[in-house]
Amino acid sequence: MRTVRILLLTALLVGLATSALAQSVTLLNVSYDPTREFYREYNAAFQKHWRTQTGQNVTIRQSHGGAGSQARAVIDGLDADVVTLALAYDIDAIHERAGLIPKDWQSRLPNNSSPYTSTIVLLVRKGNPKGIKDWDDLIRPDVQVITPNPKTSGGARWNYLAAWGYALKKYGSDEEAREFVRKILANVPVLDPAARGTTNTFVQRRIGDAFIAWENEALLAIEQLGRGEYEIVVPSVSILAEPPVTVIDRNVDRKGTRQVAEAYLEYLYSPEGQRLAGKHYYRPSDPAIAKEFEAQFPDVKLFTIEDVFGGWQQAQTRHFLDGGEFDKIFDSLRR
């Protein structure tokens, strides 16, 4: 008799627990390194938004790391509901290698699925002792340049392409652009494998005169390391860096989380999501919100990777794969 009662009680408790579980859902957002602070705040905002909208509790787990290794983790079976990475090439790989998302994933959300953008700027030391004003100063033999290795760091690929695009616009030919980038790379004393390590080299080791960095990382570095120690130099022309986001279709359909995962990404485009992006030094894509942050983001002439390089696949194949332009440049710089 007593056993029956215990069984009944257990059944009741299990039933209650499952119905409570139905009231809550978990998302996994697989992202790259510099978005850590932004998504911490955005997740809290979305949780509140989703609860008022649907009454459901959503728990968001975050994973951060290098964009390439994060994409590989998803390809190898990490159960991500959404990915928010540094460049489209790594998300393309999720389609090509594992078929978890359709080929046209990037056209599913506005602005090439990039709710916020950034650009590439130069960080220099206090008072700008070497008088660095634009990309041209980086080829001077007396200037040391800090940038990570574009073969291992997604961010560094934007740096490299920004310099190449600038030279292409200025001189008009690929040969001269190659020579320009070659001169910059000849001024690089250390190639860190990842962007965060490079900040360490420039800031802690005090190596180098100019640090090529994402605008959001540069602004964050200035904020965290104290104003006045470093200055940002905005070049005349730079690249529009678009870090894209997407739902991982296979995973959300299996887990039944598509609705909340899509809402999670769409909310990035809402005024509140856009404002948080601006607060964390990403350029909002919504022009009205971007206006609120005018003072923070100087006007730069921006070109896109689509315009100048024909998209990520082409840029990657031509410049960064083994035997590409980057390897050729280093081959010619061999000591």
Binding site: G66, G68, S69, R72, N149, K151, T152, L191, P193, Q316, F320, L321, D322, D327, F330, R334, R335
Partner: peptide
């Protein structure tokens, strides 16, 4: 490259591609 690159780093480089 060609100077202070260890072999495990080259393996990571390949994986990034």
């Amino acid at each position: 490259p060609y100077y202070t690159e260890i072999t495990p780093l080259l393996i990571i480089t390949k994986l990034e591609q």
